[in-house]
């Protein structure tokens, strides 16, 4: 188990390229594993000699292994994306709040993901699908720039086969694409929702989350029943450094998952 800032060593066991800039890494602990995560939590991943970054867990919370999906957007994430099976990385965590999936039991579960935002939602999807009958309905709405930039694209059909209603839209269709073209919010507008019975989980770039949450609320879903995963500059993961402060929240501890009733006013403040 990690304590404080000391990471546990994990060995990469599998590397799967999701898109041109995004990979999913499967890891097994070399040292004592970190505690089991809950869907929506993140870890601090350490590329030795390069740096440490917060990455949401994209795998199901079973066993000792970890599955995390990383987009290469900077030096550290590029180093992590470039790792290959056999290499070691450091892991601290898990940290933060989770999607609180059990509180959605018996209701309609609406998952809204934009781009790599499907990664932090995947554990919730997998857990929900593993509990047939626990939810009245599982509706998964996914938006991406293009079909080539869909993460977990190979898993969507199996989610459908297991009972989820999965709808995908892209900004730019490629040849042969017969799905939706347009914003993910348009999928929300078109969805047959029962607002009073809906719990929604939204993840993606902040603007996408804000617009999607607003679209859900416009359909009548209570803001407190719309959960978003916020990002700020998580550094310590221990609510000590303050880098991830968003108003009264330290997002490494009080987030990343917060209700839109709490998030909406904070996202409207320009300087936050």
């Amino acid at each position: 188990m990690t304590t404080g800032f000391i990471p546990a060593r994990y060995r990469i066991t599998e590397r799967y390229g999701e898109t041109h800039d995004t990979v999913t890494l499967a890891m097994q602990p070399v040292d004592e594993p970190i505690p089991a995560h809950r869907p929506g939590q993140f870890t601090m991943l350490y590329a030795f000699g390069v740096g440490e970054v917060p990455i949401s867990v994209s795998g199901e919370p079973s066993g000792y292994g970890l599955i995390q999906t990383i987009r290469s957007v900077g030096a550290v994430t590029a180093a992590l994306c470039a790792t290959s099976p056999g290499q070691l990385i450091g892991v601290r965590g898990p940290y933060g709040t989770d999607w609180d999936l059990p509180s959605a039991a018996g209701r309609d579960l609406v998952i809204v993901a934009g781009g790599i935002g499907l990664a932090p939602l995947r554990p919730a999807v997998v857990a929900a699908l593993a509990s047939p009958g626990a939810f009245r309905r599982i509706l998964i709405l996914i938006g991406a720039r293009s079909p080539a930039e869909l993460v977990f694209a190979g898993q969507l059909d199996s989610w459908r086969e297991r009972g989820a209603d999965v709808r995908v839209t892209v900004d730019r269709a490629s040849s042969g694409w017969t799905g939706n073209v347009g914003l993910v919010t348009q999928l929300i507008d078109r969805a047959d929702l029962d607002p009073a019975q809906t719990t929604a989980m939204v993840c993606g770039p902040e603007l996408m989350m804000r617009l999607s949450a607003q679209a859900l609320c416009a359909r009548g879903v209570a803001p407190s029943r719309v959960r978003v995963s916020l990002e700020r500059n998580m550094r310590c993961g221990l609510a000590e450094c303050g880098h991830c402060q968003l108003g009264p929240l330290l997002l490494c501890r009080d987030g990343p998952v917060v209700g839109f009733d709490q998030a909406a006013p904070l996202l409207a403040i320009r300087e936050l």
């Binding site: 917060p54 957007v73 550290v76 935002g117 617009l211």
Partner: peptide, 20 residues
């Protein structure tokens, strides 16, 4: 919707948690 799509909503450098 067109204006929002012009912002390249999913391609921002703002993944779910911050990445330096």
């Amino acid at each position: 919707a067109t204006r929002i799509r012009m912002l390249d909503l999913y391609a921002s450098s703002h993944p779910p948690v911050s990445l330096p």
